[in-house]
Design a protein around this nucleic acid. Structure first.
Lengths: 218, 218
DNA sequence: TTGGAAATGAAACACCTGTTTGAAACGGCT
DNA sequence: AGCCGTTTCAAACAGGTGTTTCATTTCCAA
């Protein structure tokens, strides 16, 4: 009884989700209306409420998935890193930790996710919400605590308070750096067009180098 | 002919501006309606269009003033710093430069301005606007270039590209750290209530220390 | 083939936004 | 006092938002 429902409804459901990812990445969290959304998805307005219950619920699902995917990717990388370190009887280095943290924001194969992740966090800061709160608490907080613990080990010269602060400063730096290339491109403007913002590899290098230095070296 | 107009209109004009500062700082850029605004200002809805032309124009004036004030404060501090350094025949240190940059965000006498400044920048990144663009370009870009130049001198081990990047990462870190204490208080939650977010002095110290380290030491 | 649930579509709905209107009240000046 | 430009006020307005309605179509199973 549910099988046909799944396959049949799956079509427009997926079309809507896909269009939502595109539009949110392009126009930002406040620039997408239900009308523009259904137009890009070749669907009817009512389809959103029919398939998702409400626009808020759709948005929640979208960003919960993005956040969960990024958290899982980081957890996998951290597991691998810690296994490696356990074998070599050493603790992870600051640079290694930070590289796993930055990775989901700068995935060459999926640049959209990094932008969306940044938008989620900015939205949660600029005007928190029932669903931003839920996404951050349920998908991101645990991962953040793991990073803070690891960084605390890797940077024994820093107090716990300092590591907490620097974790948050790190997130902020990444998020706003990401959003810059996504919209206003202030970095390119101020540097006199000398910067190539599309070069993800060098972008990652600059960001990681700064953050590693911020935590007190490699 | 203008005198009485100025004094008479000045009253509600100022009341509206003051209420706007309060509400924008408390509710964020997207949480203030013309109705809540005039209610808090004991004014009529039409007063906003009568005195400011439009809600957008009012918002523009508010944030242009905030941005201008912060830029002027920083310019004054930089002038003093550079005069001091010229007398001592040395160049400004990274820490000295960054302390002037952070200062307007963490003014004990006016904590509202820091929050508003952070909101302006987040809004400009999350969803740029005609007036955010104008404020950033006209009030902030020149100051940013001066900082980048100074930091380039103070951190000769960094390339120009690196300094540009780190300047933007610095802004991002400050802005999101500021917005955290303003709304979601994630730092306090994750640290198990061990952090005292109201202690501005130690907050400034943590931020500056991280940024100084990020630029490669003192 | 046919019955009935699932899905779609066009239109209307209710709500909230910023803006405008036109009349009333105010306040200084002659 | 009487005038007139300035300012205030309540109400209505226009535009956009998400949601709902209900008739229609689609599609699978009996």
């Amino acid at each position: 009884m549910t099988e046909r429902a799944i396959t049949a409804s799956g079509a427009t459901r997926l079309r809507i989700k896909s269009a939502a990812l595109d539009l949110y990445a392009a126009k930002g969290l406040d620039g997408v209306t239900i009308r523009s959304l259904t137009e890009h998805a070749n669907a009817n307005m009512a389809a959103i409420n029919y398939h998702f219950g409400s626009k808020d619920q759709l948005t929640f699902e979208i960003f919960r998935d993005i956040a969960r995917k990024s958290a899982q990717a980081r957890i996998a990388m951290l597991d691998e890193l810690q296994a490696e370190c356990a074998a070599a009887e050493r603790t992870p280095k600051i640079r290694e930790i930070i590289e796993t943290f930055v990775a989901p924001y700068l995935d060459e194969n999926d640049p959209r996710s990094g932008v969306l992740l940044a938008q989620l966090i900015m939205k949660h800061r600029a005007g928190p919400n029932a669903w931003t709160e839920a996404v951050v608490r349920e998908e991101l907080d645990g991962m953040a605590l793991r990073y803070i613990g690891l960084l605390l080990e890797a940077a024994p010269h820093l107090t716990s308070k300092a590591v907490h602060w620097r974790y948050h400063l790190m997130v902020g730096g990444i998020v706003l750096a990401l959003s810059d290339s996504a919209s206003s491109n202030r970095l390119e403007r101020l540097s006199g067009k000398a910067m190539a913002p599309q070069d993800i590899a060098s972008k990652r290098r600059e960001i990681v180098d700064f953050l590693v230095a911020g935590f007190g070296g490699d």
